[in-house]
Design a protein around this nucleic acid. Sequence first.
DNA 1: ATACTACGTCAGCCTTATTGACATTCCAAG
DNA 2: CTTGGAATGTCAATAAGGCTGACGTAGTAT
Lengths: 166, 166
Amino acid sequence: MTDRPQASGETLLFLTDDQVRRGIEAMFFAYRGFTADPDRILAEYGYGRAHHRAIHFINRRPGLTVTALLATLGVTKQSLNRVLRALVEDGLVESRVGPRDKRERNLYLTDSGIALEAALSEVQGRRVRAAYRAAGPEAVAGFRRVLEAMMDPDLHGLYAREAERI
Amino acid sequence: MTDRPQASGETLLFLTDDQVRRGIEAMFFAYRGFTADPDRILAEYGYGRAHHRAIHFINRRPGLTVTALLATLGVTKQSLNRVLRALVEDGLVESRVGPRDKRERNLYLTDSGIALEAALSEVQGRRVRAAYRAAGPEAVAGFRRVLEAMMDPDLHGLYAREAERI
DNA sequence: ATACTACGTCAGCCTTATTGACATTCCAAG
DNA sequence: CTTGGAATGTCAATAAGGCTGACGTAGTAT
């Protein structure tokens, strides 16, 4: 379909199919690198990425309700429940009855939960920082802009809007 | 640990833990958006991302051997075999006995395989292009630089070196 | 009093991944 | 020519993490 080399005219940003495929490939490799370090720590606890995500978002929004976390992660409650139950049983997450609405459960990290979160974001952040350093400041700004644009507006919009509201 | 706001001195690129966490979060949301469109197509075929990855790399390197694909994907042969068998049975991938070394199997996409790959990279590329357009050309360059730096050198190095060799 | 919401849980199923074991084919080195 | 090892395929068992469907309970809201 598209086979012009570089061009620029109307779009100023013309990419061949091959260039796009390289970008797709880069996302795959980068995401794998991105998750490799936390995965190793999680494995020691018998946890997976699902646990990491829950811990991450509870840390970001202490007091988050189960429904809100469900919407953020985009999984079913049955799926999340298994993960959440393990975290609560292991004493990393605390589930308090909602003060306003008693049906709700507000989720908080315990001290051990905070410690694990710190360890996870430390190793993951190490790689992110290293990549940022290697690429340079303007590259980081561009990176973030592309990522934002790549997000699914339906799924992420809710989260972003909620973030402002709170 | 780190709570200075912006700074710049020695590193020229100082990021707070919170900024790094936002980056981590952005990767999560972006990767989900990135895979959403292909996932819908794959579901129609009863396939998953594993099939997509196999199709992608066979398309990129027609004649790829099973061992090379194994190393690229970083999975076990048992895991890949299931995926590969489905693709061969469904007539999307052809597995030819190696001409030089008859133990090897060279993998090729059939016409239907090429068609599916085109459909997948079309929808995925659509989102990538949209994100690139929204972010601008310099942002894209920066994005790629950060992604490259984020890859696991051990895993990706092999692939990159092999790409040059061929 | 009734309807709806938030949450938890049981059961069953699927995909993708793992480890371990074993067979086959075939290249290459002694 | 024999033998070791490499490339591949396959069987079995297991696990994480996701899904749907169904059901129950507590609490809010009308």
